Computed example of a mutant assay.
Amino acid sequence: MSAKAEAADVVTCEIRDTVAWLTIDRPKKINALSSTVVKALTGHVQALQTDDRVKVIVLRGAGAHFSVGYDIAEEVEVGLARPEDWHGALSNNVGLSMAVWASQKPTIAAVDGWCLAGACELAMACDMIIATDRAQFGEPEIRFGSGPVTLLMPFVLGQKKTMELLLTGDTIPAAEAERLGLVNRTVAPEALDATVDQLAQKIALTPLITLRLTKIALTRAYEAMGLRNAVNVNLDLAATLNAAQAPEKTEFVTRVREQGLRKALDYRDSRYGALT
């Protein structure tokens, strides 16, 4: 579905007391981050910065999954080819993650099911992640000739595990994600909303000005370590990577066009099946 044809309500915003709940509402597409979703989410996050009713922002996906990441089918349909074309498109994606990262209001990702690729980056951009025990995290895009767009994982997990995950495309369950420090805590699926709400309400007891200034201080600390520079440098490299040609990538794109995304993903993952 093209961005023009997609419904405008792919992201909903509900304010409960002092907490804004932003929901990616494309359950039939496993909440894939289309260009319309990216634009809508970015707009909501930016608008909420000046809404003094809101102290905490929650991001979640409709249905049984957070999101499978950026909409690959849309990217294939648009037919981006040159690095400069990719740079423009990827800049919007990075812009969303960094808008969440730089939010002066605390952000919580409520994650159930799949949390992959650009959606994993989006969750990592949040200040905290509460996940269900059936959630899965990872960035499998390397398996079809792409790579991480918003390079946050080194700052969250450290060098060794980041190298393993980003060079294999493996996914990890919520329990391991919690052990590694990617997730704050795991809960049963039926307890996710209540757990997130309890955490958000606890944070919201703090004065708004205190939350804002503390968030600014923490954000600047990580950026002093080079986080934003790393993200910007990676954006330039990601544009070149996405435009680069490889036989595996050509086969994947052909299968998306001729057989559909599901069969293309099955082909992609079958190449790694014997090694997992």
Rank of each mutant, 00 (worst) to 15 (best):
1 M>H: 11
4 K>G: 11
5 A>H: 12
7 A>L: 12
8 A>L: 14
9 D>F: 05
15 I>D: 08
18 T>K: 11
21 W>T: 07
24 I>N: 01
25 D>M: 04
27 P>V: 08
27 P>N: 11
29 K>T: 07
37 V>M: 03
38 V>L: 14
40 A>Q: 07
41 L>Y: 03
42 T>S: 06
44 H>P: 01
45 V>L: 03
46 Q>W: 02
49 Q>A: 10
50 T>E: 14
52 D>E: 15
53 R>F: 01
53 R>I: 03
56 V>W: 01
61 G>V: 00
69 G>M: 03
69 G>K: 01
70 Y>G: 10
70 Y>R: 05
75 E>C: 10
84 E>Q: 13
87 H>T: 00
89 A>Q: 12
92 N>P: 00
95 G>H: 03
100 V>P: 04
103 S>V: 12
103 S>K: 01
104 Q>V: 08
108 I>T: 01
116 L>F: 13
122 L>A: 03
125 A>F: 07
128 M>P: 03
129 I>A: 05
136 Q>Y: 10
137 F>V: 05
138 G>E: 09
138 G>D: 08
139 E>V: 12
139 E>I: 15
143 R>C: 10
143 R>Q: 15
145 G>K: 04
150 T>L: 02
150 T>N: 07
153 M>T: 07
156 V>N: 08
157 L>Y: 02
162 T>F: 12
163 M>S: 15
163 M>E: 15
167 L>Q: 15
169 G>T: 05
169 G>H: 05
179 R>W: 02
181 G>M: 02
181 G>A: 05
182 L>M: 13
182 L>F: 12
188 A>F: 08
190 E>V: 09
191 A>F: 07
201 Q>E: 09
201 Q>D: 11
205 L>K: 15
207 P>D: 06
208 L>T: 12
209 I>R: 14
210 T>I: 13
215 K>Y: 00
216 I>F: 09
217 A>G: 11
218 L>H: 06
219 T>V: 14
219 T>D: 10
222 Y>H: 14
223 E>W: 05
226 G>K: 06
226 G>F: 09
232 N>H: 08
234 N>R: 15
238 A>G: 06
240 T>H: 15
241 L>F: 08
243 A>Y: 13
244 A>N: 14
245 Q>M: 08
245 Q>N: 12
248 E>L: 13
253 V>W: 12
253 V>Q: 09
255 R>L: 11
256 V>T: 02
258 E>K: 09
265 L>M: 13
269 D>V: 01
270 S>M: 12
271 R>T: 05
